[in-house]
């Protein structure tokens, strides 16, 4: 930078090269991001306005793919499933995560050990989680068969085979996998709260419940924000878990936008429609992520 410039007024090629070195080192990344992120986004965006089928085509057909997309029943199902899944997943994860964080924040013996147990599912692949829960929830061999074997012979739990209820099994497995992570985020938030305020409130005679409702939980707002952003973006991207747990079925009962995009693009050869659905996924995520990144990066300046 400036120091080498003043020390070496000759400005030979070698010096100039040395000055440019940081940018040269960064340039492959810039090129990669420009092509493989933004270039590819533009490419897919373009395809969503063409009549691409099994292969990309460049014939412009305007908004037709989008119009068709919203007429397809499976897309309707996928979107309403995403709303059900997303709302339940985010709400339950936040509630459970907050509860666990508060419980763990009471000077627990072996806290580290318990935390490790609550959080380990995050280290697993969604495919592994899917396989475990697929058979655990399977009425033939799983929980239903086990409880019946214990003597309650009319017990029924066949949500995974029931097209009305199957989407909730995705919620069950996804909450199991991520709630420990939300717990860790809230726990970090709790640990950041100033003890003095709490002591003062306690001396003033505030009950524990009031303490949490009035002081602690409002201060967790940033943790809630992060949890919401992370969970919402995971919900929209959910693909692996659905594939492993239900394969999108029974029928199309657990189809989500991510599985819809994949099957329309690669197995049904409707690449234009698949691209349009990907664009809508991107727009939804961008609406959540961009404001978040914006505020985070501006704060740091």
């Amino acid at each position: 930078m400036s120091i080498s410039e003043t020390a070496n007024p000759r400005g030979s090629v070698v010096d100039r090269l040395r000055d440019a070195l940081p940018k040269i080192v960064l340039s492959p990344t810039v090129a990669i991001v420009a092509i493989f992120v933004y270039g590819f986004i533009l490419f897919t965006l373009y395809l969503s306005f063409t009549n691409s089928r099994i292969l990309p085509s460049f014939e412009w057909i305007g908004w037709q793919n989008y119009e068709n997309l919203f007429r397809i029943r499976a897309w309707d199902t996928a979107v309403s499933n995403l709303v059900i899944f997303g709302v339940l997943y985010i709400t339950i994860c936040c509630a459970l995560g907050l509860l666990l964080a508060i419980l763990l924040d009471q000077r627990i013996r072996a806290e580290g050990f318990i935390r490790t147990i609550y959080l380990y599912p995050m280290a697993l692949s969604f495919i592994v989680t899917g396989v475990a829960w697929k058979w655990f929830l399977d009425p033939g061999i799983g929980i239903e068969a086990v409880v019946r074997g214990w003597g309650w012979t009319t017990f029924e739990f066949n949500w995974i085979k029931d097209s009305q209820m199957a989407i909730y099994t995705i919620v069950i497995a996804a909450v199991w996998q991520t709630s420990g992570f939300v717990m860790a985020m809230f726990l970090a938030g709790l640990r950041g709260i100033d003890n003095e305020i709490l002591k003062a409130a306690q001396i003033d005679g505030a009950s524990t419940l009031a303490l949490y409702r009035r002081i602690v939980i409002p201060q967790l707002r940033p943790a809630f924000m992060s949890a919401f952003v992370v969970l919402a973006h995971m919900a929209i991207k959910s693909y692996d878990l659905v594939i492993a747990l239900t394969g999108g079925g029974p029928g199309t009962a657990t189809e989500l936008p991510a599985t819809f995009m994949y099957s329309y693009t690669f197995t049904r050869n409707q690449m234009g429609i698949g691209a349009a659905s990907a664009v809508i996924m991107l727009m939804t995520i961008a609406a959540i992520i961009v404001p978040y990144l914006w505020s985070e990066l501006r704060e740091k300046k």
Partner: peptide
């Protein structure tokens, strides 16, 4: 850096076809 970070969060469905 912001542009780089955004790339972490995009749904990868958006890059499957060109990739």
């Amino acid at each position: 850096f912001g542009l780089l970070l955004f790339g972490c969060f995009i749904p990868f469905q958006m890059v499957l076809i060109p990739m």
